[in-house]
Design a protein around this nucleic acid. Structure first.
Length: 766
DNA sequence: CAGTGAGCGAGCTTCCGCTTGACTT
């Protein structure tokens, strides 16, 4: 018989707490929710008043059995799940499923994992808050209704196996709408004027300053005219202003800000960040990584202050308590911080070390003093124009938290350097050294990265810390969006330069639209988004979640009944579902592009069963249509007639080589050559399948055949020893086998190979 | 790996949030 059984949500938390409590306490974990709506069907009795129908998922049966056994052996059961909506529901499900005796069961919450906080919690037990549980059930039922009623509509009206949901559909909408802004964006160019000036008569030290003109010019002629004015101008320092300022550190990490910074500073994807953080948490190195709170415990505040005092001195400390500002935050946990702030580094993989260091720096910096800066603006006037030049300098008077950490910006750093300025005074004469007019283009809004999408969702109050990473992977798995790179396009920039009284012109090139690991919508994502906007605009409204959250709050406060709220949502919603199903047509996103310039057939673009295609010929007019798949990067929304016509030119014959035909085509995996029933990939960076000639094709085939020859080290009957990407390996009956380290692959005999093959088969059986 | 694209119909797909392993190369 155990005296006390404590149930928490996470096993790592259970281990920590067990250490604080005496021998009379056993601490176990529920591993999150133990029950959910039935998986097979809707799992809700709608007519009976939206009664949830729960089941224990297969992977939770074992845990539930263990909990049941432990509970039956304990005198008192303490349920210590998180103090938020989901945590309260977990507590209630535990009581129901384990059939706990109310007189033996106590609900407690603690806000810090320290001995005193836990002891305090045990002194103040309460009962389960059924209003809060009902708010969770309303949330759960509503999400199921939305997801399980709209998704089947998509299967019937768009394509099978698609999905829609309160969260994922809004995430897709954000990406689609951003893409449309980019598609419709028209870059405009203007000329920015910068000058380098020398202070007349100042010979020692720094006597140059760089400044930017207050005016921009829209045309080259205007820019040139202004430079002509500059050529004859007298420049002098008109005004100097010195402004002190401060900068404050960012608050400690939440899940969302950790994901953003790990992406920006370390290049980690959202899922990688979470996997590494999970490991650090399980090893007791950081606090819980799924949180929306920026709060630090008293213990952490004291410890961090000690660390700062020791490392940098007392004047670098400043205790700050942060309030969580994001919508829908529930504050069940602390911010993400090092468990032991005195440890500035850890052992582990490089990635673990880097992420830990990031968390450590951010947490410590959040408790450091403001940085004091002094910003100096020097205004330069001209005697023959009202245009002024401004030079900005910045001096850090006291570095404060900047000594340790500064947050990265989402946008690329601006090129206006904050230079140290020469000691100038008003009235000083200046002489230009060089004045340059640079052509600049305006940029479209940036595409989302995984991390900036999480930031946006959080701002809208959509999704929770535990779901940000899964959302990103769901919308990619469904094929709605893809994370891709784009090489961008070169464009010319005109530059006019005034130096030594002479104007000269240059052309500079820059790459515009280059993208790395950005989220692009795919055709099916655009079609589904437009379908949802047409038929379920309420659900994909950016404020839908905020609206229902408000109602969940009323349920939690006991002011609104769960089934009333659900009924008022469901009756119009379900009518929309039925109305949408009645509409006959399927959505394919079809768009007519025009007539084929040679054959005169109508060319359209649409979504087919296997992906987006262009189609030539109208089956309605008894023409047998021909099809061609769209290429990577092409969209139904933006493809032109010209591009479409080009797609029909593949596959085509290039001619013959040694009596056999070479065919060039574009398949699912990119452009290829087909020769003697073998396929040869064409590297798109080197060759264009639409332009490639016979000569080049033969070259590619010969090259590939040569490398294939080198690939084979040895052939013994069916056994092949090959050179692969990761070194030599054995290929046998369609399976690959690793060669043990230190063996010379050329010396292997048939018997040696068979042994290696047998060994692996044995391992697999175990 | 490098195709397909019609139509029939069975049986399947799907949500969000809370938590970790269990798998493979």
């Amino acid at each position: 018989m155990i005296e006390n059984l404590v149930i928490v949500e996470s096993p790592a938390k259970a281990r920590t707490i067990e250490k604080f409590l005496g021998k009379d306490f056993k601490v176990v974990s529920s591993f999150g929710h133990i029950r959910d709506l039935t998986k097979k069907n809707l799992g809700i009795d709608i007519e009976g008043g939206f009664i949830p129908n729960y089941e224990i998922p297969r992977d939770k049966v074992k845990i539930v059995n263990e909990l049941r056994k432990a509970a039956s052996e304990a005198k008192t059961i303490w349920i210590a799940s998180d103090e938020d909506r989901e945590g309260e529901a977990i507590a209630w499900h535990l009581i129901e499923v384990l059939n706990l005796d109310p007189s033996k069961t106590k609900r407690i919450v603690f806000h810090e994992i320290t001995k005193s906080a836990i002891e305090e919690a045990i002194k103040n037990p309460r009962t389960v808050d059924m209003n809060l549980v009902n708010a969770q059930q309303a949330r759960r039922v509503l999400d199921r209704l939305v997801g399980f009623e709209i998704s089947p509509v998509l299967w019937k009206k768009v394509q099978p196996a698609l999905s829609a949901g309160r969260v994922q559909s809004v995430a897709v909408r954000l990406i689609v709408e951003r893409e449309r802004e980019i598609i419709n964006f028209k870059p405009e160019s203007s000329f920015k004027i910068t000058g380098i000036f020398k202070v007349v008569g100042m010979e020692q030290g720094q006597s140059f300053l760089k400044a930017e003109a207050s005016a921009k010019f829209h045309t080259e002629a205007e820019a040139e005219k202004f430079l002509e004015i500059c050529r004859n101008a007298d420049f002098e320092v008109k005004n100097i202003s010195v402004k002190p300022g401060t900068r404050s550190p960012a608050p400690p990490f939440t899940t969302s800000t950790l994901q953003q910074e790990a992406y920006r500073k370390l290049g980690f994807s959202v899922s990688r960040t979470m996997a590494i953080a999970q490991k650090l948490y399980e090893e007791g190195k950081i606090t819980y990584m799924r949180t929306d709170s920026t709060n630090l415990s008293k213990f952490a505040l004291i410890k961090i202050k000690e660390v700062i005092t020791e490392k940098f001195g007392e004047k670098y400390t400043r205790t700050r308590q942060y309030r969580t500002t994001s919508k829908g935050a529930q504050e069940a946990h602390e911010a993400i911080r090092p468990s032991y702030p005195e440890k500035s580094s850890i052992t582990g993989t490089q990635a673990e070390k880097n992420l830990y260091e990031l968390i450590w720096k951010r947490s410590v910096a959040s408790q450091m003093a403001d940085a004091l800066i002094e910003k100096t603006n020097v205004t330069i006037g001209m005697n023959n124009s009202t245009v002024t030049f401004t030079s900005t300098g910045e001096v850090i008077l006291f570095d404060g938290f900047l000594k340790l950490y500064s947050e990265s910006a989402d946008l690329e750093p601006q090129d206006d350097e904050k230079a140290i300025l020469p000691p100038v005074k008003a009235g000083m004469k200046l002489q230009y050294d060089k004045i340059t007019a640079h052509e600049k283009y305006t940029n479209p809004p940036p595409r989302y990265t995984e991390a900036s999408l999480v930031k946006k969702l959080e701002e809208l109050g959509i999704g929770r810390p535990s779901t940000y990473a899964p959302i990103i992977s769901t919308i990619q798995q469904r094929g709605y969006v893809a994370r891709e790179d784009r090489p961008g396009e070169k464009r010319n920039l005109r530059i006019i330069e005034l130096a030594g009284g002479k104007l000269s012109r240059f052309i500079k090139t820059e790459t515009a639209g280059k993208e790395k690991a950005k989220l692009f919508p795919k055709d099916i994502g655009i079609i589904v988004n437009d379908f949802l906007l047409d038929n379920f605009s309420e659900i994909v409204d950016y404020n839908f979640t905020a609206g229902v959250e408000e109602q969940f709050d009323h349920i939690a406060a006991g002011e609104l009944e769960c089934n009333k709220m659900l009924a008022s949502f469901y009756s119009p919603f379900h009518k929309t579902v039925e109305k949408t199903l009645e509409k006959k047509a399927r959505t394919t996103g079809a768009r007519i592009l025009g007539k084929h310039p040679v054959t005169g057939e109508t060319i359209m673009v649409k979504m087919s069963r296997y992906g987006p295609v262009v189609q030539a010929g109208d089956p309605g007019k008894n023409e047998k249509p021909s099809f061609a798949s769209l290429q990577k990067g092409q969209l139904i929304e933006t493809i032109t007639l010209e591009d479409a016509v080009k797609l029909f030119s593949l596959p085509r014959s290039l001619g013959t080589f040694e009596g056999e035909e070479i065919i060039v085509g574009a398949g699912r995996f990119g452009p290829y050559l087909k020769y003697r029933n073998k396929f040869y990939s064409i590297n798109k960076n080197n060759d264009d399948p639409y332009l490639i000639n016979l000569e080049r094709a033969i070259e590619i085939i010969k090259e590939k055949n040569d490398t294939d020859k080198k690939k084979v080290i040895k052939e013994i009957g069916e056994i092949k020893i090959l050179n692969g990407r990761y070194g030599p390996y054995i290929s046998y009956q369609g399976e690959n086998y690793k060669i043990p380290k230190g063996t010379n692959p050329e010396s292997l005999s048939e018997d040696d190979c068979l042994k290696i093959i047998e060994n692996k088969s044995k391992k697999n059986q175990k």
